[in-house]
Design a protein around this nucleic acid. Structure first.
Lengths: 315, 315
DNA sequence: CGTTTCCATAATCACCCGTTATGATTGGTC
DNA sequence: GACCAATCATAACGGGTGATTATGGAAACG
């Protein structure tokens, strides 16, 4: 019944004292004001303006509208300002979830880039394994999820989780075999997994363990898993102590100290893909886009975007 | 850029959780919501709604709008309620100005009627002589003026003051000659003014005095004005004391005690018109209309309205 | 008394904002 | 694994809002 335009007009009349001035103040012509008032009057069924001679003044009802106009228009302007602030990266929120081992280097570097570039954006970060982070993304509790998938392994399984989502490949993380310095194969150029079928193995998180099992299966043996820990630093410690061997991604090795062990590339090589995941709509939210850019930059990847179902396709 | 309708839609989506439910809640169809959101999004240049699968949820920017919607819509409703209250006589204001001698009976009776009929209306009353009350009316400081005009006398003069105004004739107030009980003509049926050319006169307010002078001039003499007071009770007291004679309107005589004097109708009769005056627009304001009705009722007049320039025309 | 300066009205036109009808896609179900 | 229900998107269409220009009438002013 009453809209913002009507209030704006009433306020302008109250402020300016005449239809003509109000029209000028609002950038309209005088007849626009004239019939705007008339429409308002017949909508409310009330006399809003008293025309006396060639001057106009608001009736009590008109003053009521003009008075309320102040608050309403202020609130409207405030809303608009907030929106443009979000659009202009002068405000906004990004909720990031990433898997634990990315927290060490990728995420901190991303947050630093983001903070430097857009200091007014609020970034929240939660550590979560891919299944949970993607669930949060689908649920709407998260804006960007950083996930990983082992090539050939759970890429297919992940793919179904990625339907309706978009991803950016951040980096290809090569998996290396970590053995004690004193190990007979410690000086090899590369490691063939079958050579280690008799070792005791140290496994990580459920999905990493799954990857280990898959690789071993391909190599024709079942690994003897003696220890399990999700903490890669602990894994390196166990290897250092000579208690077994482990598969550890490069990303971890670049960040953690590992002088006491030998790290061998696998032959054939095995990699995991690290992906940033979000929804198509969120991609168009400036703060989210900025976060993705920062993630790419931190990972040193090109900032190309690919729909979820193309993840394993090319490359 | 952002209007009330848009906010209403965003709030409905936030509350209901889907376009379809929001549409039902607002009484619209689903496509209406769909393209309303699209328009809002391209107007603000921002993603407001995140479509994931077949569910929708607000982005941060969308939540900003939904949050502001509460306040804005509440304020809008409040304004609308105030307006309808004024229209429904459950609120409103009437500023009444009346000439002093009407304050005795006409105005109190009017206020009583008004208060009984519409207890929620605020009535303010100011005593003012016709020139001032009409000026206030023109200035917008008054809603209803109760004025009077002597027939034949200043009716023409008043008429020019009444341009652009509307009037209601409240009553015709006959003017009587007041003389001491002991006066030789005290028992006459009627008074011919010429018979009192030698008396000492008691005059009232400037315009009443003007009327006296006009009547005397017609009768062929210049009255010897010995006393002047605007207080009619004082005039009656002066007459009672035998200090002179006076012209006093019936309205006063009906209200004030005057046992000690004789009141004679004039021949030819002389009347003053008592009018309620307002502007054409204010006439359509419910509270003002109610006040005019109450005035008519208090005066016992028919509630006909006549444009100002017809005041002296018929009757 | 003309002249200016207001506001009102008429005619016109664009676009906003609804509608109905229909399609695309998701997500559950037998 | 294919149907089925639910949800949002889109197209086509129509009415009304809300602006414009052009014009008229009345009031205040010199």
């Amino acid at each position: 019944m009453i809209d913002a335009a009507g209030l704006r007009v009433m306020k302008a009349i109250a402020d300016e004292g005449s239809f003509t001035s109000a029209a000028n103040a609002l950038g309209f012509t005088q007849p626009a004001i004239s019939q705007m008032v008339r429409r308002l009057e017949q909508r409310t069924g009330t006399v809003l303006v008293e025309r006396y001679g060639r001057q106009v003044r608001l009736t009590e009802a008109g003053q009521v509208l003009a008075r309320h106009a102040v608050g309403v228009l202020a609130a409207l302007d405030a809303a608009e300002e907030e929106i443009t602030a979000i659009a202009g990266l002068r405000a906004g929120r990004v909720r990031l979830q990433a898997f634990p081992s990315s927290s060490a280097t990728l995420v901190p570097r991303t947050l630093a880039i983001l903070k430097a570039r857009h200091p007014d954006i609020t970034v929240t970060f939660t550590e979560a394994e891919p299944p949970e982070s993607l669930a949060a993304l689908r649920r709407g509790d998260c804006d960007v999820a950083v996930a990983f998938a082992y090539e050939g392994g759970d890429l297919g399984e992940l793919e179904e989780d990625l339907s309706l989502l978009v991803t950016r490949r951040l980096l290809d993380d090569e998996v290396r075999l970590v053995v004690p310095r004193t190990h007979p194969h410690a000086e090899d150029e590369a490691a063939t997994l079958a050579d280690f079928s008799g070792e005791e193995w140290i496994a990580g998180c459920p999905r990493c363990r799954g990857h280990l099992l898959a690789l071993a299966d391909t190599a024709g043996f079942r690994p003897n898993v003696a220890f399990e820990t999700e903490d890669y630093v602990a894994q390196l410690g166990l290897v250092t102590a000579g208690l077994g061997v482990a598969l550890v991604p490069d990303l971890i090795l670049n960040a953690a100290k590992h002088d006491e062990v030998a790290t061998l590339p696998l032959s054939p090589a095995s990699r995991r893909q690290i992906l940033a995941v979000t929804t198509p709509d969120l991609l168009r939210v400036p703060a989210v886009a900025a976060a993705l850019d920062a993630l790419c930059e931190a990972a040193g990847a090109d900032p190309g975007v690919s729909p979820a179902h193309l993840v394993g396709g090319e490359a």
